[in-house]
Design a protein around this nucleic acid. Structure first.
Lengths: 206, 206
DNA sequence: ACCTGAACACCGTTCAAGT
DNA sequence: ACCTGAACACCGTTCAAGT
């Protein structure tokens, strides 16, 4: 398998845009968009393990081999699914002050991912370089620049913050501190907000 | 499947300890420890997809059904594997000041997980509640208490910090900021250290 | 009682045969 | 040219048959 064909890599995404552009309509009514919409519905409803090529095909009223005319592999499907979810992220109002935008985007990314919890493990499977990821990513970096941090520092802060947000989504259901009891779920958002504030405080005064 | 039997859950871990205690030696020379050691070697060498029950059995010189006498399912194997990896974490010297211990444990956890990169995605699959996880977890909370933070605050900081460390391991190879070029790998440790310092600064002065 | 070969019910993926 | 049923090479897991 050539490097360019690894789903999710930068080279793969470049090839994917090209492929989409020169694609002619299929004779079946099926669109990649419909495939992804239905895949997401299936994952949301029944979990990631339920997203088999066969089950998705059945849901779409075709055979599994038909899906391979829209998607090259299950891995590719997952990569596209992750970016589709990231397409739900609403960017903050650019009129707002930098720090507020940082807080809003972080919280919004977390909200979107938590609304599709079964998709989250797929985030760590491959790089996150799709168009919707890049859109949010560019915004995230801009916000930190707008907050007054020099480029190098803004970039480090952006990357660290992204790790924190993604980590909070991927692991907050997973992690548990010793002596913790019930009702930790309602607190998860509080912990996230606390960590975000703490980090941004350190960034401002550091 | 009863709730108690979900691998990785608190109830499952309790049952597991019991099961281990009353286990009599198997007539084949095989031990759970050997199974896990070999599983980790296989994952490290060939990736998570290569860890099939059949491949592991072959590596151990048996049939796949034999493995089910040591492990109830592949999911259970992954849960045990994660805790085995966490067993490699060395706790910091308790004589050190609180903040230094926090930094050392965070960095050590990251180091261990990065030395088994293919295991990392399995971290987000189930809760992290094994004995080795709890040992490191208790230490993490203690360090923050020792650093002078009241319990509620120490606990929130511990959870946020854990999300950050795990996120940095799970996503730093995955994430990319716009305009980033080559040689980001050597910088990944710098970004982590920056984020850690920033968070702890915010925590001290907040 | 302990062990395990062979079978079961699935997978993702391919491709020859159909239209 | 486009589509897809049927087949291939795998899975995880079970259990009847062996010792």
């Amino acid at each position: 398998m050539s490097a360019a064909s690894v789903p999710g890599s930068a080279a793969w995404w470049r090839g994917h845009e090209e492929r989409l552009a020169r694609r002619r309509p299929h004779t079946d009514g099926l669109t990649l968009e419909v495939v992804l919409t239905e895949a997401l519905a299936l994952v949301d409803a029944e979990g990631m393990d339920a997203l088999t090529v066969r089950a998705l095909a059945t849901r779409l009223g075709t055979g599994s081999s038909t899906l391979y005319r829209h998607v090259a592999s299950r891995d590719e499907l997952l990569v596209l699914l992750v970016d589709a979810v990231l397409g739900e992220v609403r960017l903050p109002d650019p009129e707002l002050p930098g720090r507020e935008r940082v807080e809003q985007l972080s919280t919004e990314l977390r909200r979107v991912l938590r609304s599709h919890p079964h998709v989250v493990p797929a985030l760590s499977g491959s790089p996150i370089l799709g168009p919707n990821a890049m859109r949010a990513s560019a915004c995230g970096l801009d916000n930190l620049l707008a907050a007054g941090h020099p480029p190098e520092r803004a970039r480090a802060a952006y990357l660290a913050l992204l790790d924190y947000v993604l980590g909070s989504v991927a692991f907050d259901a997973a992690a548990e501190s010793p002596g913790a009891t019930h009702d930790r779920r309602p607190r998860s958002d509080d912990v996230f907000a606390f960590g975000l504030t703490t980090f941004l405080d350190g960034l401002e005064r550091g």
